[in-house]
Structure formats: C-alpha cells, structure tokens
Design a protein around this nucleic acid. Structure first.
Length: 139
RNA sequence: GCAGUUGGACGGCUUGUCGCUGACCCUUCGGGGGAAGAGGAAAGUCCGGGCAACACAGGGCAUCCCACUUGUUAAUGGCAAGCAAUCCGCGAGGGUUGAGCAGUGGAGAAGAAAAUAACCGCCCCUCCCCCCUUUUCGGGUGGUGGGGUAAGGGUGAGAAGGUGAGGCAAGAGCUCACCAGCCGUGUGGUGACACACGGGCUGUCCGCCUUGGGAGUUGUAAGGUCAUGUAAACCGGCGCUAUGAGGGUAGCCCGCCCAAGCCGGAGGGUAGACCGCUAGAGCCACACGGUGACGGGUGGCGCAGAUAAAUGACAGGCACCUUUCCCUCAUACGGAGAGGCACAGAACCCGGCUUAUAGGCCGACUGCUUUC
C-alpha cells in the first residue's frame, strides 16, 4: 500500500484512463452524492483494474467559469482539500477487495474560500465512507 | 510646478508548513535524492512563416486575397521612413482615405433640373390691349408667340471649376488676373510626388469591370514506431487483359498519368505507451553601419514541456496604493488602524496584429505658469 497515511496525491491516484472515466459517467454501477457546491460521482471497481485503491478526477465545467485561471483555481483547491482529507476514505478502503473511482464535479458559478471547501470535503468523504462500510458488511 | 503628446521598460520581494511535474544521480529494483518549472499579453485565433503528411507534365476559364511610394524581413494584410487629400488639436501630435484620363450601369427622398440642363428669374424681337406724353419720334404696365441666357433662387454629399474685373441686350473661360484640378514639356527626387512654363476648359458618390501582384490542400488530434485485435472472412453491385470498371490531376474544361480491382452494406478491434517535443528566424551584452524598421560582427548564456493537462494551497512579514486617527503651524517628518494589490494560465514552434490590464518608473517633446 504505497500512499496510505501520507497526505500526497501522486499520478496513480489521479484517474486518467478514458475507459474508466467513460464507465463512470455512462455505466450503471456509479452513484452520486451532492454537497453544494460539489457533486461526487463514485463507482466501485475491481482492485486489479486500477492503479490505486482510490482514484479521483476533478471537473470544472467551462460554462461555469469562462476563464481558465478561475477553473484552475477551483481544481487546485479541490485537489488540496481531497489531499488533506483523503485518509477518511482510505481507512475504510484499505482492507476491502474493491477500489473506488471518484469524480468531483463543480456546480457553482462563484468561487468559494478554501476553508469552506475543506469543510464540505470532509462531510462528503465521510458520507461515502459510511456507505462503503455498509456495503462491505452486507457482502 | 501644473496640464498634455509620444516612445520604452516593469507589473512584485520574502519566510515557514504541506503538496504537483520532473532533466539527472543513486539503488539491495521495494524505492531514495533532486536541477529546473507560465505571460506581456501564455488570450482572441485575425494575418504571415517554419515543420509535417498528401498531392503536383502542361494549358485555358472560373474563384479567393492584396492595392499611394520606397525600403525592411523567412514572410505578411506587419513594421519603418516618406507622398497626396482631408478632418481634429493653440501646440507637441493624432485620426481617416489612397491602382485605373478604357468601357458600362445606378443614384431614393429633396429639388425646376442629377448631365446632349431653362421652373421662377434676367434680356431681345414680333403682335395685341390699355395708359402717359404728344405734331411726330418715344416711354410704361399686362398678355400671346419666337429666341437668347447658367449671374440670382431654394434642394442636395454633389448644381456644370472658385473669387474679382472687363465685356455684353442679358449673360457665359467670352476675355484677363489669382487660385484649385487635368494634360504636355522641362528641372529635382530611386519613387509616390514637388516646382516652373505652356495649353485647353473641368461635377460627386457607388457598383460591375479593367490593370498589376499573389494563392496546392490539410494542420502536431499533422505524422511516425510499438502494443492490443484481426478478416486476404461474409452479403450486394460494377469490372476482369481492356473498345479498360475505377482513380488522380485543388472548382470546371482540354490534355496527361495510374490502373485490376473498385463502390456500398453489415460486422470486428484499439482509443494505451513512446517519438514528434523543444537549440530556436533563441536570449543577453557590447560597439559598428543605417534617419529608421533592420542588418552583419564579437563575446557570453543554456531558458517550462504538462497530457481529465504540473508550475500550487495555507499562514505570516516587507514594499506599493487608498483612507481614518494621533502628533504637528503643516496636506512635512514620525506613529497606529482598516481596506486594496490588475488583466490573466503554456498545449508543435516562431514573427506580427487585435483586445484586456491595479499601480507606479524612465526618455523625448508641447502649452501655460513661477523664479533668475
């Protein structure tokens, strides 16, 4: 388990495979949770299909922010927030047989403070962790 | 000192914690260390080139782009220095326009009339009526008919070159002077043009058109290597050694070339890695040539390469700007607080253009004011 425990976010943890991403948005196995201004689409996959137990991607639609500078700002904030709080999820997933793919989608047209986004990230990750735990216990 | 014109350069610095990409180095192949890491516009994708793939005997027509001159450059529709007309500004300066004395067409409304001008007006002649004067000659008002006239009228972007004088029945480049335009000659300039002399006598705008110059197409998702999968399979149509199906030759035609397969349907596979990918018309400094754009020369430097897309997040300090308060004669010096700190993110690489931009800095010049 390479990256567990430390607050890093290397390339393996960022999802970039076209096929997996396509499945995530079109396939039936994915579910979503919203905590404004965020929406998370997540999907459990086989552990051997991806490189890391939890991998993410961040999407900020162009229609919300016309300028690339603002889109980059939001992506960086979100990556940072996930990086600092991903242990919430990893603790749950570490021993499971499945891996998880997450997509963070930005919903607002305004920028938010980093402090606020940290808070929202904590909330949303805990909720996903809860659901995954239930699933594991059922199976 | 104030106001302004124009050109140029900058557009933060720094500490700590936690991260991202990563040349290269080490490795017990698990990993560890780690140089370096956004812009003047990286933007819009509006021009031009490099590079790449494909195409390319030749000719005609069509299409598209450019249009004062000379220069500059790899190249341009850029840039520099100029030319002419016109507009704005007291000025330094700034804006707009710019091939064509061939042909052809159009110009609403307004106005009499928009280009072989006569509505009103002005002038002459014939005739008629009336009046005045009267010996007659003559004069006047009005009207019919004929003719001359572009000075005046209002309209318009534009009214038959303009102004003045002469001339005339009234007028007119009819004549003359000056001015604008055009043509010819001469002089100067590489040239656009300028000046001088002479000549004739001259509308404005917009098309088509003509002339000269130029253009192969597609863009790094180009293009290449490897990996994966396989199918030289199946169905239908046309053709099968040519009297040739079909294809290429940028859109069409001629011509030329290739040619044994071609077209359609249904279906299958991959959408991952590497190269391209950053040494380039490169950046900096110094003199030199040139009014300048720029050029060649010498020396130095090694300067982002991501790919669901790195170059950051957070906390503090400094600088800068605005503002409030304290001190003070003071808007000076000093101190305290609050707020602000632009536009904006590389995506093959360059040269331009255009647009966005808080804030201050430097050079040259102009006007006003003060002092000497």
């Amino acid at each position: 388990m390479p990256t567990t425990g430390t607050a890093t976010l290397c390339k393996a943890e960022r999802q970039h495979r076209r096929g997996v991403i396509g499945q995530l948005f079109e396939g039936g196995g994915s579910k979503s949770i919203s905590v404004f201004p965020l929406r998370v689409v997540y999907m459990p996959v086989g552990r051997d299909e991806v490189e890391a137990p939890v991998s993410i991607l961040v999407s900020v639609p162009k229609r919300h922010f016309k300028r690339a500078v603002k889109r980059n700002r939001v992506k960086r904030q979100l990556r940072e927030a996930y990086r600092l709080h991903k242990h919430i999820l990893l603790d749950t997933m570490a021993n499971g047989e499945n891996a998880l793919v997450l997509a963070f989608i930005w919903l607002d047209k305004e920028l938010h403070t980093t402090e606020e986004l940290m808070d929202k990230m904590k909330k949303i990750l805990s909720r996903i962790a809860e659901k995954m735990q239930q699933q594991q216990q059922q199976s």
